[in-house]
Simulated scan of single mutants.
Amino acid sequence: MDEQCRNCPALCETRTTVVHGYGDVGADFLFVGERPSPAADEVGVPFAGGGVGGEDGDGGEDDDEDRLGQRLQRILQRLGLCVTGSDPNRPELANVYLTNLTRCRDPERPPTDDEIGTCEPYLNAEIRMINPEILVPVGERALFELATEYTTRPASEFDVADDHATTIRGRGFELVPMVDPRNQTDDQTQAWVEHFAQLMASDYRQTKGRQKR
């Protein structure tokens, strides 16, 4: 992975760090967000929890984006996939790998289609390297991109709110979409945790023809 990537000149001017994937390289579960948060841009770790010890900030724009990492880490802790009390900027993860559609951040806007396409080889390389059982698209944009690549249905047929806390049979992987944790209601969070816990307790490794590592 290129830590000095210059493929998107506009993003090179706004980023602090190129944020590649992070976590357990033997993981069964790979979570994919849209772009690095402010905290991730600073420390180089996707879904970093920010500098507030995992607590919600004061409501500013950067706090809102970092809250995504904070809340996702809490969900992972409930499932036993993240060590409670570990550094929220470099959490201790087990059986989980975290990444994004794009590696760099513009603080003023989401990534363009061209930028996501330019970063796609990095994401594909991570998916091949990890060879997970389950892909978790976090948010609508990630669901659209992963559904385009890994399902046989048109991506326009999927909706992250409708498909939240469900399992979608894909091509080579199963997808378990998640509404952006910042926007989840308590009921949505509970539904996703319960669904994923049931999946973890099942014979999910036998649900598809998985390539050997």
Rank of each mutant, 00 (worst) to 15 (best):
L98T: 10
E194G: 02
D2I: 05
T152Q: 03
G57D: 05
G117L: 09
Q211Y: 06
N89T: 13
H20F: 11
A201L: 10
D56L: 15
T16M: 14
Q70N: 09
V43K: 13
G60F: 05
E61N: 09
V160P: 01
P137D: 00
P46H: 07
G60W: 02
S86Q: 05
D163C: 06
L76Q: 01
I134L: 05
A10P: 11
L135W: 04
V160S: 02
C82G: 04
A94G: 03
N7A: 14
L11S: 06
H20N: 13
A191T: 00
S202Y: 04
T207S: 14
I130P: 04
D114V: 10
L199V: 05
R103K: 10
E115G: 02
V43N: 13
A201C: 08
T16R: 15
Q70K: 15
C104A: 12
F196G: 01
N124A: 15
L79P: 01
G51M: 06
T118F: 01
Y97W: 11
R74E: 12
Y204A: 01
L11N: 05
L68I: 13
F29A: 13
G23V: 04
G57W: 03
E115Q: 09
A191S: 08
D41R: 10
P36L: 06
V19M: 09
E3S: 11
L79H: 02
L81C: 03
T166G: 04
D114P: 01
T17M: 14
A165Q: 08
N95K: 08
R71H: 01
Y150K: 01
P46V: 08
E42R: 15
Y22E: 03
T189F: 00
E42G: 07
E65M: 12
E157C: 07
R210G: 04
A155S: 14
E145P: 06
G57M: 05
R103A: 03
